[in-house]
Design a protein around this nucleic acid. Structure first.
Length: 527
RNA sequence: GGGCCCUUAGCUCAGUUGGUUAGAGCAACUGACUUUUAAUCAGUAGGUCCUCGGUUCGAAUCCGAGAGGGCUCACCA
């Protein structure tokens, strides 16, 4: 690894989208006279369920922009906030074991709902922990913020008071967008009942910005007067977004295109509050193999875990880097391809001029610290080897790779190691289930026993040809009409598939004794 | 219907501030090699750059209109 610092004039002319975003952000900072100090990137998370691949994508993409910005304008200090909306009420029971016990907590802030698994201090806390574990695994640099903490600690008090002050303007913005029924009860500020602990969707009967108090009717009909500060009230959706921006001085936040309308309204709200809205960016949603929108409830598309089972975090970042404005299909087949594309970018980076590097995805994925060594084979080739050899034994796979790439350095072989792990998972999930072992015929059994015998005796360091010849000898000794049939039988009995590795090289790598044992075990399988 | 976004080879995508003959990987096809297959290697083929119009000496690229697709426009977040 070596940190590549590209000169600003090169970056200035780069066309990669994070660079364009960084330049747009700089314009905003100049406009708001925020000439130095802290630049805040915000990302959001709804802790009503575990983090999904879209949550991850938002942080990844925001990180790309942040890196571009820091590289272009190194004088600014930057931070990424990951804000969990755990003050939101629990609207329905989550699809997890033990959820029934949560019924009494409906409508209460997610941070006050107990964790049905009993591990975290709250339901939201459990999901927040998962989110952070994911982000940490990818090495993202961020600051986690619990919305509940922000409310309870008073960090959002200023935004709530300000919302009271501009209440009429905000209502004018929101009301025209609502249906008639909702219009009658809408309030941008939602009190939290001191009695039931629930977030109440009730109209405000009275309000006083100077004292920061509101009057409303609780669910049981009680008329209450209470402060909006210190977690006694929260902001409603679009107002809440504006409230985050207001409280955290957010300069940049991207969001999925399904939220474009919400962003528009939130921008108008924060303007009513007297601040400049952050620079935004709408990225497209992911689709499944059929081109349908991926949703948590439907369970279509891939999860983060599934991706990471077959390919590296960096490859998932690449998927998020390329064409964010395009609705892309996210399904298994693209994983090996994306993984190979990632390594190809890394490989190119080493020989590229700075101007090209400034557009290379690897530059953004690694924040400039691009690896200098790549694995000796592509992931696609490795999967082919796994398929053809019918094995996921890392030692054997290493042997095959070394055979394909005799010049591979130690460092390159070391870079292969994580890839081997992904190949093993691929083998277990896709190759193994298709295997079906059959019992040998008497003739085949005799030939296989012959093989066991010979491989037990033959030298460990013979040439591939020697081993290959033994296999043919076994077939001929039993009088097989064509060798193709003999090999097919060998593969079906020993490897559980009708195709397999060339036997000579396989035995050379796997070892004649080990091969003898492998065949022996296959013969006992049906015995 | 309004708004935002997308459309380049069968698939996934590149295409360097408008510039010669639009490229890559996979898939397909042909051949070489291996005493089976797969793999590997070499090569071939494949495009109305969604359509039409405009700007320009010159357009995949810029502008306009249209077509197709995605999201969004009651509630909730």
């Amino acid at each position: 690894m070596s940190n590549h610092i590209l000169p600003p004039d090169i970056l200035e002319n780069a066309k990669a989208w994070p660079i364009q975003e960084a330049k747009a952000l700089k314009k905003r900072l100049d406009k708001t006279a925020k000439k130095d100090g802290l630049v805040t990137f915000e990302t959001g998370y709804g802790p009503s369920g575990p983090p999904h691949i879209g949550t991850f994508g938002e942080v990844a993409r925001t990180s790309f922009v942040r890196h571009a910005f820091s590289a272009l304008y190194p004088d600014y200090e930057t931070r990424i906030l990951s804000v969990s909306d755990d003050m939101d009420g629990m609207r329905k029971l989550p699809p997890v074991p033990g959820a029934d016990a949560l019924e009494p907590y409906l409508q209460q802030p997610l941070s006050r709902v107990p964790d049905p698994a009993g591990e975290a201090e709250s339901f939201a806390g459990a999901n927040n922990a998962k989110l952070q574990a994911f982000l940490d695994r990818f090495g993202f640099d961020y600051e986690f913020i619990s919305a509940s903490d922000a409310y309870n600690s008073g960090r959002k008090d200023g935004a709530l008071i300000r919302m009271l002050e501009v209440y009429d303007e905000v209502m004018d913005i929101i009301l025209p967008t609502l249906g008639e029924e909702r219009r009658a009860t809408y309030s941008p500020i939602l009190p939290i009942s001191p009695d039931s602990g629930r977030v109440l969707y009730v109209p405000l009967l009275e309000r006083d910005a100077a004292s920061g108090t509101i009057v409303y009717e609780d669910e049981d009909g009680t008329r209450r007067e209470q402060k909006v500060t210190r977690g006694q009230a929260k902001l409603q959706w679009k107002a809440d977004w504006a409230g985050h921006w207001y409280a955290f001085d957010t300069d940049y936040e991207m969001s999925g295109e399904d939220l474009t309308e919400s962003v528009r309204l939130s921008r108008r709200i924060i303007q009513a509050m007297g601040k400049e809205p952050p620079v935004g960016f709408n990225y497209q949603l992911f689709l499944d193999e059929e081109g349908k929108k991926i949703s948590k409830t439907k369970g279509n598309g891939l999860t983060i875990e599934e991706w990471l089972r077959y390919a590296s975090p960096a490859s998932l970042q690449l998927f998020n880097f390329s064409a964010p404005k395009k609705a892309k299909k996210l399904y298994f087949d693209i994983i090996p391809k994306t993984a190979d594309e990632y390594w190809s970018h890394v490989e190119k980076f080493a020989d590229q001029e700075d101007a090209k590097r400034a557009d290379n995805p690897a530059f953004f994925i690694h924040q400039g610290d691009v690896p200098s060594v790549t694995p000796p084979v592509s992931f696609s080739l490795l999967l082919n080897i796994v398929d053809a050899s019918g094995t996921s034994d890392p030692e054997v796979l290493r042997g095959f790779v070394a055979k394909y790439r005799p010049d591979a350095s130690e460092e390159e072989m070391a870079a292969l190691e994580p890839m081997l792990g992904y190949a093993v998972n691929y083998f277990q999930d896709f190759v193994l289930p298709k295997k079906s072992f059959r019992a040998p015929t008497d003739e085949e059994r005799a030939a296989l026993e012959f093989l066991v015998q010979r491989f037990s005796e033959v030298g460990e360091d013979e040439a591939e040809d020697v081993y290959q010849t033994i296999v043919f000898d076994a077939g001929k000794a039993q009088g097989f009409e064509n060798m193709r049939g003999w090999f097919k039988a060998l593969y079906e009995v020993v490897f559980g598939q009708s195709e397999g590795p060339r036997m000579g090289p396989f035995v050379k790598i796997y070892g004649p004794r080990e091969t003898a044992e492998l065949i022996g075990r296959a013969l006992k399988r049906e015995a």
